[in-house]
């Protein structure tokens, strides 16, 4: 396996369309809930320990070769907001295109043909990590980092937040990411042996409600 492949996959410039999404940060900024670096950190920490945990476990399980159909249905059941389900599939479709071009593999082709409208992003991320020769821990880290770096970058644009402050927020989340990534791999191993019922189902009420409010807005900078 190549460690450098992780950098390629985790790079914010990897052409998978993530830059068009704020991970719920735009809705939180518009509602006045994120106003500065401290509230951005609380937002990112909440996201990390809810939808972030779920996504990391799914990505890690997909990297271990768990059934993508089962994982995709499990993400649906854990994502009540139709706006978030649609965004997750759109991101999955875009990531699939980039991953197939970057790391051609029959397994990725199989996942792509199973989901013509796109599988949920963490399912594709795990499959892409697998195609790149990466492991479950790499997939979990990649998913977690993307889940907080997206909102942090978006808030720099939305609020004019100092980029140094936004990067500081990400650095302060590093210990939490380490813990969650390790737990995600353990969970992923149990998914392979016991099925998707062991996946966590942590949810964040205002991420769901905010995503619907955002989708209903006529003018917005980010798609979600």
């Amino acid at each position: 396996m190549s460690r450098a492949a992780l950098l390629v996959l985790a790079d914010g410039r990897f052409p998978a369309g993530g830059h068009a999404h704020s991970g719920g940060a735009e809705a939180a900024v518009r509602a006045g809930r994120v106003t500065d670096a401290a509230s951005l950190e609380a937002f990112c920490r909440g996201r990390l320990h809810t939808s972030g945990v779920v996504a990391a476990c799914v990505a890690a399980a997909a990297a271990l070769g768990a059934d993508p159909g089962d994982l995709d249905r499990a993400v649906d059941a854990r994502t009540p907001s139709p706006a978030l389900r649609a965004a997750g599939r759109r991101l999955g479709r875009q990531l699939m295109r980039a991953a197939r071009a970057t790391w051609p593999s029959p397994e990725l082709d199989a996942v792509a043909s199973l989901f013509p409208k796109g599988a949920h992003q963490p399912v594709v991320l795990g499959a892409a990590a697998r195609a790149a020769g990466l492991g479950a821990l790499d997939a979990a880290y990649c998913s977690l980092y993307e889940g907080v770096s997206g909102p942090a970058t978006a808030v720099v644009r939305l609020l004019g937040l100092d980029p140094f402050d936004a990067t500081g927020v990400l650095a302060r989340l590093a210990d939490d990411m380490d813990r969650v990534a390790r737990d995600a791999v353990e969970t992923a191993e149990r998914v392979v042996s016991d099925g998707v019922g062991v996946l966590p189902a942590r949810s964040a009420p205002l991420l769901e409600i905010g995503a619907e409010a955002h989708a209903a807005r006529a003018v917005r900078l980010f798609a979600s």
Partner: peptide, 8 residues
């Protein structure tokens, strides 16, 4: 962490 923050 973050349960009572802007996402929770």
């Amino acid at each position: 962490g973050g349960w009572d923050g802007p996402a929770g």
